[in-house]
Design a binder for these strands. Structure first.
Lengths: 189, 189
DNA sequence: GGTAAAGTAGACCATTCAGTCTAATTTCAG
DNA sequence: CTGAAATTAGACTGAATGGTCTACTTTACC
């Protein structure tokens, strides 16, 4: 056994739900991807919904932490740290193709299921808070509200990743966010 | 007969697919919403997919035209015309709750279906071109590429409308895009 | 008024859906 | 080695899925 069954399931479900959506992913697809029988799946998770909620907490949440990995450096202005994180996104082909996994699940499930809305919001707030903390430490133009600016940054990156056609290129993403970067630089003090 | 059956179907399918997604909408839900028998539905459309592609062309495309209704005025700077259109979005409760219908369908269907990707891209390009034409007529700072700026504007608005929690408020939307507005104003010449 | 086309009506179909159930097997503690 | 718990195995279920088919009714034109 190379990987515990439960972990194997979470990996497969993440990949499927991320690329095909919750309603676009069936149990049989998951079973085939995992190469396990149905009994194993329902031993570890009580339902499809419970499974995807686990994916949210155990796969998507850590990914969000990892991607906006904002190691503050004493040398750089915090704004530059954030810009570097945004630019780094361009190197992830999956992100360019499918967008932010949290945003995808949010758009599909939050309007129709309170449990999803709740769990997604927790992850979103954590993501936002990380940005807020960084911005609060930085020297910015006056009248800049860190919370509002954080939401603006996340919104723009999410939007840039979801532009049609879905399979957006690295160059296109970078061009789109070049305006965001230019704006952020004007906020430095 | 108050409304032709075909139009009634398109309206119902738009509302359902917009709020619940393509895979979250079943034929039986559509039938119940329309209060028509199955025979009528399949008389007008050969399949679920054909139906939603028709919704794209006959409902979503016109909406996009309508919402970014950018009547240029000789008095206002084109940037202000665009800002007004962006602010107007805040008055649409559906948009605040479910986001841009084109963006929703794009995220769900474009990665898994070429026909959807193609049709969505046509509508997206039309939307973008409208902005590009307006920007090209306007006096902007040098080095501003109208096409890139248009994509940035659309991305930001789409992103602001898809922030978690999904049911975002008018105030929250306006706060988020206040940064976009501030940036756009700096581009005026 | 007759007739052909357009549209309505809903029973019916194979397939797939998420989920259940019982049994076999493996794991591990004592 | 033994027995209990954890896990694997997959046949099975009822409901829902998208779609077909034939029959009936309305509409519109000659």
């Amino acid at each position: 056994m190379t990987q515990p069954t439960r972990e194997k399931i979470l990996d497969a479900v993440f990949a499927l739900v991320y690329t095909k959506g919750y309603n676009g992913t069936s149990m049989s697809m998951i079973l085939e991807a995992c190469q396990i029988p149905k009994g194993s799946l329902y031993h570890h998770f009580s339902s499809k919904k419970a499974m995807v909620l686990a994916v949210l907490k155990e796969r998507i949440a850590p990914r969000m932490d990892q991607f906006y990995d904002l190691r503050a450096s004493a040398e750089n202005h915090e704004i530059d740290t954030i810009i570097a994180a945004i630019v780094k996104v361009a190197d992830n082909r999956e992100l360019l193709c499918y967008g932010c996994p949290l945003n995808r699940l949010n758009q599909e499930m939050a309007p129709v299921d309170n449990d999803f809305e709740y769990e997604i919001n927790i992850i979103y707030e954590a993501l936002k808070d990380k940005l807020v903390q960084l911005l609060k430490r930085s020297r910015l133009q006056e009248n800049v509200n860190s919370e509002m600016l954080s939401e603006f940054i996340i919104a723009t990156v999410w939007g840039a990743l979801s532009l049609s056609p879905n399979h957006s290129s690295k160059a296109r993403y970078l061009q789109t966010i070049s305006h965001l970067i230019a704006y952020l630089k004007t906020l430095k003090r």
